[in-house]
């Protein structure tokens, strides 16, 4: 008796399961860690008086990389605890969805460092651009994650757009130190608040 039909059945089942599997790693600790990192970075930048466009950009670029590193470690640890592969199909899809906007955001970090004239991109334009790009990135990932993530992305897009409009209508932007507070409030505060919310509401066991 041929076993083709059984192989095809198994293939169909596998495809359906992979297509359906949502990214369900416990986001609460990841969000809280990134939130606290953002808040701590804002305080540090305020204390260290990081006031030039270039140092502002490099500082927050470094914080973003540190945040990615923290998230990577926490996700890997969760996968290990569940005896599941780190690079699971849902993880792969979420990464692929986030990558374009995240890559664009990381490239903008370099803009103030480029020798493109005597007037480098003012640091004040970077936070709103980062917020919009990060929001777009999170929103894209939301198609493969539980409900709520897309809204979280929209909040960043809305905050960034509002900041862009406010900046566009402002004749002289406030000191760069205030931009650090904005970064801390949005990237740190929003993540920490969402992490706290998830801690109170997440009850399902994580599977990715």
């Amino acid at each position: 008796m041929e076993s083709h039909w059984a192989v095809e059945h198994l293939q169909v089942i596998r495809t359906l399961m992979e297509r359906t599997a949502l990214y369900r790693r416990a986001l609460a600790p990841i969000m809280l860690a990134i939130g606290l990192l953002g808040l701590a970075a804002a305080v540090a930048a305020w204390i260290l008086r990081i006031d030039s466009s270039r140092s502002f950009s490099l500082f927050w670029g470094g914080v973003a990389l540190a945040g990615l590193g923290v998230a990577f470690r926490l996700i890997r640890r969760q996968a290990g605890q569940e005896s599941e592969p780190f690079w699971s199909p849902p993880t792969r899809r979420v990464t692929q969805a986030m990558l374009p906007a995240m890559a664009a955001g990381l490239i903008t970090v370099l803009l103030p460092c480029l020798p493109c004239g005597s007037d480098p991109l003012p640091a004040w334009w970077l936070p709103p651009i980062w917020m919009v790009l990060y929001g777009a990135s999170v929103h894209a990932a939301g198609f493969f994650m539980p409900r709520g993530i897309k809204l979280f992305g929209w909040i960043f897009v809305a905050a960034g757009s509002a900041a862009l409009l406010a900046l566009g209508s402002c004749s002289s932007p406030p000191p760069i130190r205030i931009a650090h507070l904005l970064m801390g409030a949005v990237f740190g505060g929003f993540h920490a608040a969402y992490g706290a919310y998830l801690y109170l509401t997440e009850s399902r066991s994580p599977t990715a």
Binding site: H9, V12, I13, L16, T20
Partner: peptide, 12 residues
């Protein structure tokens, strides 16, 4: 029915 069970096996 197999399709229904397959997708529900991958999602709570």
């Amino acid at each position: 029915r197999l399709a229904i069970l397959s997708v529900l096996a991958a999602s709570p």
